[in-house]
Design a protein around this nucleic acid. Structure first.
Length: 263
DNA sequence: CTCCATGTTTAGAA
DNA sequence: CTTCTAAACATGGA
């Protein structure tokens, strides 16, 4: 789940259900997700305070308290869930913020690859992590500059968080499918119309996914996302979906729509 | 048992 | 220095 659209959905969920409520209790159910902060300091920071604003950069979610920001990353299986007064937290809840009104916000992560920390400033955090610009803020001119500095293929460029923040395996495949570009097309070799297509589809795919709450069942049936299976029919009915192995990950694409050239 | 999984980090090869 | 691959992390599902 957690690529840019998913994290934006979590951000809105937190903004609606987790701001301006006093945090009565901080329940750390599994400290393994804490990075650079112990449960004591997390508790001292949050307990008795409230979250006042949210921000997102790429796949990172930030929430401000008095002077300090909570930072959350969701790994491969993480999400935020709002709980009502008597709801039992999900099995894999790792951190639960209990508000004085009885509701709570749970950070859930089955595989425990996600992380939770604190930072004095989101901008500093982003710089320290070396993250590139948020994918939704990238203009066509910026995209041209970013791609010009790259020697490898398009898919690995889109997924490189130090180049552009927010795009992962699923949405890089979707963007390339919609833009009709092969995953291993040389990033620096795009002509003007290809680059324009890539930029338009990058924006369209991510923002439409957000509009549909990043819910795959509500995304268009013509999207690749719903047909990630080797040998299945391309949703444009042009050919057969194929699976490549790129960087240890499955990359799905349609050779007919996206070409079969490399480099 | 096998292979796969929406992410990141690390070591080593090219 | 850049890019790519495999493995590791932890926990499942098919």
């Amino acid at each position: 789940m957690p690529e840019l659209p998913d994290v934006e959905v979590f951000r809105r969920r937190l903004a609606r259900g987790g701001l301006h409520r006093e945090i009565e209790r901080v329940e750390v159910r599994d400290p393994i997700v804490l990075r650079g902060v112990g449960r004591d300091r997390l508790r001292r920071t949050l307990q008795g305070n409230e979250l006042t604003s949210t921000r997102r950069h790429g796949k990172h979610l930030f929430a401000s308290t008095d002077g300090v920001w909570l930072v959350e990353h969701f790994g491969m299986t993480g999400y935020l869930e709002r709980l009502r007064a008597d709801d039992a937290p999900p099995r894999h809840a790792r951190l639960v913020l209990h508000f004085t009104d009885g509701a709570s916000m749970a950070y859930v992560d089955q595989r425990r690859i996600g992380s939770i920390g604190l930072t004095d400033d989101p901008g500093e955090f982003v710089a320290a992590e070396g993250l590139g610009p948020d994918a939704l803020g990238v203009t066509e001119a910026t995209l041209r500059e970013l791609l010009a500095s790259r020697r490898g293929g398009l898919k690995s460029a889109l997924m490189d968080q130090e180049l552009i923040a927010g795009i992962g395996n699923i949405y890089s495949d979707e963007i390339l499918f919609q833009a009709r570009l092969h995953p291993t097309t040389a990033a620096r070799g795009l002509d003007g119309s290809e680059r324009r297509r890539l930029h338009r589809q990058l924006r369209r795919v991510l923002s439409l996914a957000i509009d549909r709450h990043a819910d795959p069942t509500r995304l268009p049936p013509g999207w690749l996302l719903r047909h990630r299976e080797d040998g299945t029919r391309c949703p444009r009915r042009n050919g057969t979906i194929r699976r490549l192995r790129l960087g240890g990950r499955g990359a799905f694409y349609c050779p007919s729509c996206q070409g079969d050239r490399r480099g």
